[in-house]
Simulated scan of single mutants.
Amino acid sequence: MEPKQGFIRQKGLLNLVGFSAPTLWRKVKAGTFPKPVKLGQNMTAWRMEEVNQWMNSIQ
């Protein structure tokens, strides 16, 4: 079970949601998946609160 708060990087997120990286970025661009945040110059992550809200909305 994933944490309800904090951040999740792309690799963990893809395992959680079950789709590919291109599909993830297509959904982000289309506005149908939460946008990531930059945590550093080379670090992007998603807020778990937003990911959990998205997961609850599709059930």
Rank of each mutant, 00 (worst) to 15 (best):
M1T: 07
M1G: 11
E2V: 13
K4E: 14
K4Y: 08
K4V: 07
G6Q: 07
I8T: 07
I8N: 06
I8V: 15
Q10P: 07
Q10T: 10
K11P: 00
K11G: 04
L13G: 05
L13I: 00
L13F: 04
L14N: 10
N15Q: 13
N15H: 02
L16I: 03
L16K: 12
G18F: 10
G18E: 11
F19A: 04
F19R: 02
F19D: 02
A21Y: 09
P22A: 03
P22E: 10
P22G: 01
L24H: 08
L24G: 08
W25H: 13
R26D: 11
R26T: 03
R26P: 04
K27S: 05
K27W: 12
K27T: 04
V28G: 05
K29C: 09
K29A: 15
A30C: 04
A30I: 05
A30H: 10
A30K: 14
T32R: 11
T32M: 06
T32Q: 06
F33T: 08
F33D: 01
F33Y: 05
K35D: 10
K35Y: 06
K35G: 06
P36R: 02
P36A: 12
V37M: 05
V37P: 05
L39V: 04
L39F: 02
G40N: 12
Q41I: 14
N42P: 00
M43Q: 15
A45E: 02
A45K: 01
R47I: 14
R47Q: 15
M48N: 14
M48D: 07
N52H: 14
Q53P: 01
Q53I: 13
Q53M: 13
M55A: 15
M55W: 12
N56S: 13
N56A: 14
S57M: 09
I58E: 08
Q59P: 09
